[in-house]
Amino acid sequence: MLIGVLALQGAFREHRRALAKAGAAAREVRLPAELEGLDALVIPGGESTTIGKLMVSYHLLESVRELAAAGLPVFGTCAGLVMLAREVVEGEQPLLGLMDIRVRRNAFGRQVRSFEADLDLPLLGKEPFHGVFIRAPWIESAGPGVEVLAEYQGHAVAARQDNLLVTAFHPELTEDLRLHRQFIGMAASLTPWR
């Protein structure tokens, strides 16, 4: 299993570390050629406007879009969730537009409102998942094909749709590997996605 981590900007190193601990080989992706042969892809947290612009300039937006539309499993956290969305509530920015969700950026407020909280995430079992939310987005609305996996204060903060998994929080900043394991399992069940 070889998982790419989009390494244009943000917390890509933390995802690599988490994937390695969960038993998957990882490769940093900065150019389209580095997408070749991947079994899955992670889009990390960071600034979604920065990541989006760099994806456009380096022709990654259309390459990733094509691969994911063909079934490549993709896990997006925070900025990665924004990138995967069909639409953001305010403003114009490049998006992959793959997941049938409408997303509000910085929905919980600016940095002084960033927070940690325990979440119910039934997919992973009874034990709550410790969510680290940094200027986090939430899912404002989701289409019928989207399964909401966790909510916080009435807002969807984790979801799945076919080969796509997203969280508004940062599992890569904690030692809890359950979501990375879940994604690796999801990728394994979908392989060979081609």
Partner: peptide
């Protein structure tokens, strides 16, 4: 829910990495 923790403070810096 906890705000202003060292985790969320250093966490934003983590998200800025690789950037200008």
């Amino acid at each position: 829910m906890k705000i202003g923790t060292m985790k969320v403070k250093t966490g934003l810096a983590e998200m800025l990495k690789g950037g200008v």
